[in-house]
C-alpha cells in the first residue's frame, strides 16, 4: 500500500518533533501551565516568564559564555587541523592513506567515559584542568575525524584541474588554494564548522569531568538539574536545542556531503 511509507514517515517525524514541541511549549508557558496536568497541547497563554527566570539564575550567562568560548575554540581547531589534513587526503597519495582514514574513525571507538578520567589526571598535571582550552581540546578530538573526512570529500569534489589551471595562470600553491579552492569549499567548510560547534555545545560528559568552576552551559545545567524546578529544566532544554535546530536547518544540503552520499 502507498499509505504505509507516509504513515511511517509521519510517525518518525512526530517522534522527533513532539518532544521538541513540548519543550518549546513549556519554555514559553507561564509557571502554572508547566505544572498543570493534564498538559495543554495547544499554547494557552504564552509568556517569557520562564525564560526570563532561567536567564536570571546565577551562573547561566557565565556558563553560556564559557560554552561559546569552548565551542569557538573547537571550531577553530577543527578547521585549522581538519581542513589541511582533509586536503592532504584528497590530493596527495601517500603510503598508509587508507589506514589513516580508518584510524581517524577508530578514534571515535574509545568512549569519552573511558578517556575522561585519565585526561582529567593529565590535565591537572599540565595545568589545563578547569580551562576552556582543555575542554576545547577534548571536543576537538571528538570533531576532528569528521572535520578531516568531510573536508577530504569536499576537496575531492573540487577538480584538481581548477588548481592546476590557477598554477599555470600565475598562482603559487597557496594563492591557488586561497583564490580558487577556498571559495568553492567554503559552504562545506562552514557546515563542518557548525557541526563542530554543535558537537561541542551539546557535549556534557567531558565538560563535566574536566571542569570545576568554568563549566560549560550543558555541564552547568547538569549540576543544577536535580535541584531545579521543572520550568527551569524546560527553559534550559529549549536553550540547548535551539542551536542544533538552526544548524540542521542551515546545513541540510551539506549533510549529504557529510555522509558521502553525493560522492562515489
Amino acid at each position: 500500500m502507498r499509505v504505509w511509507p507516509w504513515l511511517l514517515a509521519l510517525a518518525f517525524t512526530l517522534w522527533v518533533l513532539l518532544p521538541i514541541y513540548l519543550i518549546a511549549l513549556s519554555a514559553f508557558s507561564p509557571r502554572e501551565a508547566v505544572y498543570a496536568w493534564p498538559k495543554a497541547f495547544l499554547p494557552g497563554s504564552l509568556s517569557l516568564e520562564t525564560l526570563r527566570f532561567f536567564f536570571g539564575v546565577e551562573g547561566v550567562w557565565r556558563a553560556t559564555a564559557t560554552s561559546l568560548v569552548v565551542a569557538g575554540l573547537t571550531v577553530a581547531f577543527s578547521l585549522l587541523l581538519g581542513a589541511p589534513a582533509g586536503y592532504a587526503l584528497a590530493r596527495f597519495p601517500f603510503p598508509g592513506r587508507d589506514a589513516f582514514r580508518v584510524l581517524l574513525i577508530l578514534t571515535r571507538a574509545f568512549p569519552i567515559v573511558v578517556l575522561a578520567l585519565p585526561l582529567a589526571v593529565l590535565f591537572l598535571r599540565v595545568g589545563l584542568y578547569d580551562t576552556p582550552l582543555g575542554v576545547a581540546l577534548v571536543h576537538t578530538a571528538l570533531t576532528l575525524p569528521f572535520a578531516v573526512l568531510v573536508s577530504a570529500s569536499l576537496f575531492l569534489s573540487i577538480p584538481k584541474e581548477l588548481e592546476e589551471a590557477a598554477w599555470t595562470l600565475g598562482c603559487t600553491r597557496t594563492q591557488a588554494f586561497v583564490k580558487v579552492v577556498l571559495p568553492l569549499a567554503l559552504p562545506g567548510l562552514a557546515a563542518t564548522a557548525i557541526f563542530a560547534f554543535i558537537t561541542s555545545w551539546n557535549e556534557v560528559f567531558a565538560a563535566s569531568v574536566l571542569t570545576l568552576q568554568n563549566k560549560t552551559l550543558t555541564a552547568y545545567l547538569l549540576t543544577l538539574l536535580d535541584e531545579s524546578p521543572l520550568p527551569f529544566k524546560f527553559a534550559g532544554g529549549f536553550f540547548l536545542v535551539v542551536p542544533a535546530l538552526v544548524f540542521l536547518f542551515l546545513v541540510r544540503r551539506y549533510l549529504f556531503t557529510l555522509w558521502g552520499i553525493s560522492h562515489r
Binding site: P159, L162, E164, A165, A166, T168, P183, L184
Partner: peptide
Amino acid sequence: MVFQNYAIFPH
C-alpha cells in the same frame, strides 16, 4: 594551458 574539462573557475 587549456584543459580537457576546461577547468573554468565556477565561482
